[in-house]
Design a protein around this nucleic acid. Structure first.
Lengths: 348, 348
DNA sequence: TGCATCAACGCAAACGTTTGCGGTAGAGTC
DNA sequence: GACTCTACCGCAAACGTTTGCGTTGATGCA
């Protein structure tokens, strides 16, 4: 069926040189004369020679491949990171094997073992239910970089800095959010998140801290069981009762979903309540009303991850941790508290 | 630095058998006794042996890996297909190498060559500026499956059925849209799309045909230069002038983006104009107003692609083409034309 | 005892690269 | 003409698997 693919031997025969020479010529080795180099290259092109990475990585003991595990590419913020990561990797001559972990330990372990089997040069993990230790153990000796705040040990604060973690500056983001909210005159704020994951806790703590810095009270905290499956509905109802001025969500997806539920509950944003997100996914820009949120340049995050991994590989050091800058984007969901002419009726 | 990874030889030594036996034992070969099989397996586990896929694919002449090229995973519909694809592939023991083509010929060719270098078992392409012929040539002899309508030759209609293409039933989708629109009493309809790509043309033709079936006139067609970069703004303005009852967009992203521009232009959906999308991305469900659209089960599309590829590999046949069923989801953007009590004023 | 049979396992080749080291031919030097 | 030197290039080992075929020892049967 398949007419056998063309190998170095074929090129060597055709060029009347040895395979060693062909290999060196194609890699631009200076101990091969310019003349033979170009001749070999031409012949390789003619024959449509494509190197076999399996053979190469067998002798090199590592492949020009990154493993990338994300909880779910369907999440827009993850998709952006993945895109940036893949793009930068490609530019540096690396392939990327993608796996979705789905927050399932079995799936995740399988994915990581898969990476190990491929002898990937390095791997990036964007969220996992496994412990950092287990992840590293499964992947050892490949370097691992944790992308995003999902891996910061609870309460650990900034202590993860030595562990190889690249994440947005949640603390600064929340500070900007609170500054903005206060400057616009909002008083009571609530916090809405899902029920699992470290990011939600980190951002909550950051919000609490930022509020405290301004001498404000702690926010009311709502956490939904399953955000994607209507878990925000009861929360919308409770928001309707407790009437906070503003609710900041742990990410844009939650914010957008919540806005939908608020609408169903008869509240209109931002008249009845302000909403703030985090991430600045593409749809935050065109939601109705358009969402005020914290932009974290997710594609840059992906690209920077590759750079970090690359320098780790080349210089043989452990991956260093790093915080990505973040910026508030003010849009329509936080115009300042609504002051109606005569009455303040929230029950539409 | 790295203490050399454990190989079959290590396991063999420890188990006091040959590498051949270890290999066979781990693969469950029946010519190895049950006793040694379990013993070898235990030792392999103890030693944390991880097979080297490079060595394996070198002798097997193909790796348990799929190549998946998408124009841009950032697009929600693509992300869904990718997720389904990766998930199903993993369940069948395959890895997937992901590449973004970005509609750039150079990037795309590099991605495909990368797949070829990896000796992938098969590849799926979700959109490309390259010709089908070139794609297949670059990948030969690996089977290629084209996912989505992006590869149907212009005007080719259903003639691509022999070429290995899995795509949603655009024609039926548009038929359902038109049925619904007419049943709700809409009369004049417009069509909005971007400026490049085959899907836009296919769906336009499908819309035209469906309208013709009902004896309706051709829709007014608007196509934007760069949908993502404000290209829809002038189109929103022209819609404001020409006042169609309903505008159907070639996909949800365009629809959502257009709704945003319509809002900026002072039109309110669906009072001033109805909007219909295509794809049913997650955000269509929670847009404000919620978008009427055609659902195409994108994750199933990805999963089915893997199944198709797998049967192609195993049975050695060419990939067959297939049409995925599609279903209209009626939401809030098409309630029927607005009949105001006394006047019909569209200029807010 | 002699022979065939059979289960269980080992030998070694092959897959396509990379690379250290050795070889060769031509030019230059005395 | 013998020598060294340099520029180019070839030999062959090694990377970790898989698998066809050969080998071994035990068992069955006459």
């Amino acid at each position: 069926m398949s007419p056998r693919r063309v190998t170095l031997v074929d090129v060597a025969k055709r060029a009347a040189v040895s395979v060693a020479t062909v290999s060196r010529a194609l890699s631009g080795d200076s101990q091969i004369s310019e003349a033979t180099q170009s001749r070999v290259r031409r012949i390789a092109d003619d024959l449509k020679y494509v190197p076999n990475v399996a053979a190469r990585s067998l002798v090199l003991q590592s492949s020009a491949t990154f493993g990338l595990m994300t909880p779910d590419v369907t999440d827009p913020i993850h998709a952006q990171v993945v895109t940036g990561f893949q793009q930068q990797a490609a530019e540096q001559g690396y392939s990327v094997i993608l796996s979705n972990g789905f927050w399932d330990p079995v799936t995740e372990r399988r994915a990581l073992r898969e990476f190990a089997a491929h002898r990937v040069a390095a791997v990036a993990v964007m969220g996992s239910v496994l412990s950092q230790a287990e992840v590293k153990r499964l992947l050892s000796p490949s370097p691992v970089l944790f992308i995003g705040s999902e891996h910061v040990p609870p309460g650990g604060g900034e202590l993860d800095m030595a562990r190889g973690c690249l994440r947005p500056d949640d603390r600064d983001g929340m500070r900007q959010v609170v500054d903005h909210l206060i400057q616009r005159g909002y008083r009571s704020v609530a916090y809405v998140s899902g029920s699992s994951g470290a990011t939600q806790v980190i951002r909550r703590d950051a919000l609490v801290a930022a509020l405290a810095d301004h001498g404000r009270a702690e926010p009311v905290v709502f956490s939904a069981d399953d955000v994607d499956a209507g878990g925000l509905r009861p929360i919308a109802a409770r928001i309707r009762q407790s009437c906070p001025d503003a609710v900041v969500c742990y990410d844009d997806k939650t914010a957008l979903l919540l806005m939908d539920e608020l609408r169903s509950a008869g509240l209109t944003v931002p008249r009845d309540v302000a909403v703030v997100g985090f991430d600045d996914i593409p749809f935050a820009r065109i939601s109705n009303p358009r969402l005020t949120t914290v932009s974290q340049r997710a594609d840059d995050l992906g690209r920077t991850s590759v750079d970090l991994l690359l320098s780790t590989i080349e210089r043989g050091r452990l991956p260093v941790s790093q915080l990505m800058p973040v910026a508030l984007v003010v849009r329509e969901t936080t115009p300042g508290p609504f002051r109606p002419p005569h009455r303040k009726d929230r029950r539409s």
